[in-house]
Design a protein around this nucleic acid. Structure first.
Lengths: 228, 228
DNA sequence: CATTATAATGATGTATACATCACTTGTCAA
DNA sequence: TTGACAAGTGATGTATACATCATTATAATG
């Protein structure tokens, strides 16, 4: 009885939250979609109570907006939103590298560096490696508020990455990550933080350029002004 | 019909959220208290649905923890929590001064400076002035994610201020705010950001010193380790 | 007297019924 | 044909009934 059912049976509200969030950031549900609670109950195989709980959390993360008596709007992406999101990332990422990078063991950095040199990774593997790298610094902080902030912006960034399919930017990402990790290994935290800032700024520019290139063809997804 | 009933009739869930949060950060409900949904329904004069919604939001802000099948724990304050909270403030406050201070009109700064010179303010007035000053920079950013971060940490700080009653620190706060505003008025944003950083660090030290002085007498409120 | 098993209690998790409000559509009149 | 009013539809807001699980107390047995 010790290890048979050690799996914590996730509550429906947690499951609904994760499932719905996944569908939104993966753009299976497109930005701008107007949902109803009933359709979500059907989609998530749960009743309104856990679904409403999930919606409430996603609204706090600015992924959806609850329009009273109308429905649940999956927030559109916009140039404005990109600016806001990356303003937080620029504040955030260099700070945690600068302040908590020294809590990470050298072996972790060397392992990352080896991974960043690989050229035979699939796109999915690179995505995951990217997430792990950034998450490492968040975990090193051991700070629940920092973790919350990262949780709020992380998945939005994932959504933009999926929308922009930036295949050719992945190599650059590897190079920039490599630069950050090597400076951490040297203990040059100012340089590491600066490298992280540059990395975030470049990432922002890549996404903005993509939006500029494609917003003619996808006005229903990329929109400048929020409605209502 | 234009300005008669412009008051948006607040939903019960919004009302429940604000009321409960107010009771927690004002320490009318002491840290460490274990609540039940039923008692909250009674207290907030609402049914479980809006109450659960409020609890869910407060859990995301780390003000309460939902203990399945046990109750709702009002999170205790701890030295660890203070460190985490102020780590975010130190990252946050100087950044927005540095980046968005120039969006605030000179008149706003001069008005604040006049207020900071006053010596006839009540404690409540000083509290409010303090909040307004910091909120001004958040609003200047026009960034919803920054606003969310500030919303998450702001009220926690209020709670510590109420617990520590730091009467003698209020004068120092006025002086430090004055220093920040004058540097903003000069357009010396690096100096303004540095003044803000010093201000936050001092604020943190004042609270930590208070906790060290009093944690013997209030072990039920100040506790180092989280339970369970 | 101690220990274990069982039943009762009380908490949240979940589902659903009812209330309220906004919007749309259809009909009637000018 | 157009406009206004009313009824119907469908959405969330709210309340409550039921399910599940953990804890505790009590009783029975060694």
């Amino acid at each position: 009885m010790s290890e048979t059912d050690q799996v914590p049976p996730k509550s429906l509200k947690q499951l609904a939250y994760e499932t719905l969030k996944e569908k939104i950031v993966s753009c299976e549900i497109l930005p701008g979609t107007l949902l109803t609670e009933d359709s979500l109950c059907d989609m998530l195989k749960a009743s309104r109570t856990p679904v409403r709980d999930a919606i409430s959390r996603l609204e706090q993360e600015h992924l959806v907006s609850i329009k009273p008596k109308k429905g649940i709007r999956v927030n559109r992406v916009s140039m404005n939103n990109i600016q806001e999101l990356f303003a937080v990332r620029v504040m955030f990422a260099p700070y945690i590298v600068r302040n908590y990078g020294n809590r990470i063991r050298d072996e972790v950095y060397t392992r990352f560096i080896q991974q960043f040199k690989r050229t035979d990774c699939t796109k999915e593997e690179l995505f995951q490696l990217d997430n792990e790298f950034h998450q490492t610094f968040v975990d090193a902080s051991g700070n629940r508020y920092i973790a919350s902030v990262y949780e709020m912006i992380k998945d939005q960034v994932v959504r933009y990455r999926i929308l922009s399919t930036a295949g050719n930017r992945l190599d650059t990402t590897q190079t920039e990550h490599h630069a950050i990790a090597t400076r951490c290994l040297c203990g040059d935290w100012d340089a590491a933080a600066e490298a992280m800032r540059v990395h975030i700024e470049n990432s922002k520019l890549a996404i903005i350029n993509y939006v500029i290139d494609t917003n003619r063809n996808a006005h229903n997804v990329f929109i400048e002004e929020e409605e209502e």
